[in-house]
Simulated scan of single mutants.
Amino acid sequence: MSEIELHRKLLGDARRNAAFHDALKSVIQPGVTTVLDIGAGTGFLSFLARRLGAKHCTLIEYADTLELAEQLACRNRIDGLGFIKAHSMEVRRRLSVNVAVTETLGNFALEEGLLETAIDARRFLGPDGVILPARLRQFAAPVFADRLQRDIDIWPAVGYGLDLEPARTISLNNMYVKTVLAADLHGSADCAQCWDDLDLRPQAAAPSSRRQKSLQWRADALPQRHIAGFALWWAAELVPGIVLSTSPFEPPTHWEQIYLPLLRPVDLDAGDVLDLTLSCDTRPDVGVRLTWKTRQLRGGKAVAEQVQDSWKGRL
């Protein structure tokens, strides 16, 4: 995808734009507040901040869109801006700002380095500085409908007498950006569980780039016992009271959900427990690595297990 196409999608998302506008408005004191915009892109958030009265905005962006941001600023007669072409983690200039904002959210929330960017941004904040978003929570839920799994797992149906199992295994070790429908989750958000809760505020302890969480669902409490895969989505609290969510049960944004396929479906018996362990590693030298281990527990013992790793899908 070209850079301008990415930003066309971003700026075409009215929910996203309104949420960031309202969040900035809540933290900007006109004529006083200074803002750092990390991953500034076309400069949209800085333009909003200046229109809301920010004293000065510094834009950091490593892509060529920074030059476009300068053109757009001139065209709209927006001054009080500084431009730094670099990755924010490489910037050694001393800055002391009141607000740092980074809209580096992906379909999988952390795929654009949000966590590491937000933690690194703390060094640019003055006393009582704030960062947007302030908190990120990620959710997981079992997917009961076979619709998405059938769309991905085409390998057994290719035919012509070919055994494509090695290709199938690689394919099913990937995270897929998909539109997950409420109907795929049996129309209820009750099965969703939070598997990752990141407090990004400067006063909070810095979360690790390597995290793991196990979730469990009792078969008797599920609306269906046939599990095709898992859905992931996120909710970003920009400031208290203003939340952007990619939940299938919320109005859509330009972001979609993540579908985690299974190597084989899980059919639970009464009394079984579905156990999912998610392990996430987003260290800069790693990028994004997600593993998901699915176990079917009966009487506290695993009667079936499958482990998938996004690194095994990197072909």
Rank of each mutant, 00 (worst) to 15 (best):
Q224A: 14
Q224P: 09
R225W: 14
I227P: 01
I227S: 04
I227G: 01
G229E: 04
G229T: 01
F230P: 07
A231T: 11
L232K: 02
W234Y: 11
A235Q: 15
A236R: 04
E237L: 10
E237K: 03
L238S: 00
V239P: 00
V239H: 00
V239D: 04
P240H: 15
I242Y: 02
I242E: 00
I242Q: 03
V243Y: 09
V243E: 09
V243I: 14
L244G: 06
L244T: 11
L244P: 00
T246P: 01
T246Y: 00
F249C: 05
F249E: 10
T253W: 05
T253S: 07
T253P: 07
W255Q: 04
W255M: 02
E256A: 12
I258T: 14
Y259I: 02
L260T: 12
L263W: 00
R264C: 11
P265I: 13
D269T: 04
A270Y: 06
G271W: 15
G271R: 05
L274H: 07
D275E: 15
D275Y: 08
L276S: 14
L276V: 11
T277S: 08
L278Y: 01
D281I: 15
D281F: 04
T282D: 01
T282M: 09
R283C: 03
R283F: 04
P284H: 13
G287L: 11
G287M: 10
L290R: 06
L290I: 13
L290W: 03
T291V: 03
K293S: 11
R295K: 10
R295I: 01
L297T: 02
